[in-house]
Lab assay of single mutants.
Amino acid sequence: FSITQFVRNLGLEHLMDIFEREQITLRVLVEMGHKELKEIGINAYGHREKLIKGVERLI
């Protein structure tokens, strides 16, 4: 299971460039909250919320 699959499953594949540029893996994403996601350029609250909720389902 990769970050690419995870992001695609959430319908947020347009954010993949950010994850690749910042070298974010699923392991790193698990540790990130709204503040960190915003810092790397994910400005939409809804997108950040989707990512965080998606990660919570993985754990």
Rank of each mutant, 00 (worst) to 15 (best):
S2L: 09
S2F: 09
I3V: 09
I3C: 04
I3E: 01
T4K: 14
T4A: 14
T4R: 14
Q5V: 12
Q5W: 08
Q5F: 07
F6D: 00
V7P: 00
R8M: 12
N9A: 15
N9W: 13
N9G: 12
G11N: 08
G11D: 07
G11Y: 05
L12R: 01
H14L: 11
H14R: 07
H14V: 13
L15H: 02
L15Y: 09
M16R: 07
M16F: 06
M16C: 08
I18Q: 03
I18N: 03
F19V: 04
F19N: 00
E20H: 11
E20V: 14
E20Y: 10
R21N: 08
R21E: 06
E22D: 06
E22M: 07
E22K: 14
Q23L: 07
I24E: 02
I24R: 02
I24L: 07
T25E: 06
T25Q: 06
R27D: 15
R27C: 15
R27V: 09
R27F: 10
R27A: 14
R27G: 14
V28Y: 07
E31T: 14
E31D: 14
M32G: 02
G33P: 01
G33Y: 03
H34G: 05
K35E: 11
E36L: 05
E36P: 03
E36D: 08
L37M: 08
K38H: 07
K38V: 08
K38M: 14
K38D: 06
E39C: 08
E39L: 11
E39H: 09
E39T: 08
I40N: 02
I40K: 05
G41V: 07
I42W: 02
I42G: 02
N43S: 11
N43E: 13
N43G: 10
N43Q: 12
N43M: 12
A44K: 13
A44H: 15
A44Y: 13
A44R: 10
A44M: 08
Y45N: 08
Y45T: 09
Y45M: 10
Y45E: 12
Y45I: 11
H47N: 13
H47A: 14
H47T: 15
H47V: 15
H47F: 07
R48E: 03
R48Y: 05
E49M: 12
E49Q: 11
E49F: 07
K50M: 12
K50I: 13
L51Q: 00
L51D: 00
L51W: 03
I52A: 00
I52V: 05
K53C: 10
K53D: 06
G54K: 04
G54F: 04
V55Q: 02
V55T: 07
V55R: 04
V55S: 09
E56A: 14
E56C: 11
R57A: 15
I59S: 08
I59P: 06
I59K: 14
